[in-house]
């Protein structure tokens, strides 16, 4: 119920305090003497060349997209799992069919070569 969620909200605040306060305390305790060399980009002692935010290949994105589609589908299954006792056999089997479509999807992506890292 909502008191449970109130606790989650309070815990969120507490977690942020616990994670943030030591950082601030350490900032007060520690010395602060920046100079240009110290705060330059560290790349193993070699001067950095060009812009940092370089382009990456699109394959990473394909994996993220596949993940998104799987994630959306699996979340549908959680209410189905909670209601398991009240479902008919047909209801359970339609859930299994849903998972099977996911499986076929994975095989299709595999076959297409999406999962190959090049």
């Amino acid at each position: 119920m909502q008191t449970d969620w109130l606790y989650i909200g309070l815990f969120l605040v507490v977690a942020v305090i616990f994670a943030g306060a030591p950082l601030i305390i350490a900032g007060l305790l520690s010395p602060r003497k920046p100079n240009p060399i110290k705060s330059s980009t560290y790349e193993c002692g070699i001067e950095t060349v060009g812009e940092t935010w370089v382009q990456f290949k699109a394959q990473y994105y394909i994996f993220a997209l596949t993940f998104l589609i799987f994630d959306v589908e699996i979340v549908f299954l959680f209410p189905w799992a909670v209601a398991f006792d009240q479902l008919t056999l047909f209801g359970v089997l339609s859930g299994v069919l849903f998972v099977f479509i996911l499986f076929a999807e994975l095989l299709a992506a595999w076959r297409k070569g999406v999962l190959e890292w090049v």
Partner: peptide
């Protein structure tokens, strides 16, 4: 939540599979 799960595979079965 279990009501939601039940209706997903009974009332809204077709949209559920179609979503997949």
């Amino acid at each position: 939540i279990s009501e939601l799960g039940k209706s997903l595979v009974s009332t809204y079965l077709l949209p559920f599979e179609l979503a997949s």
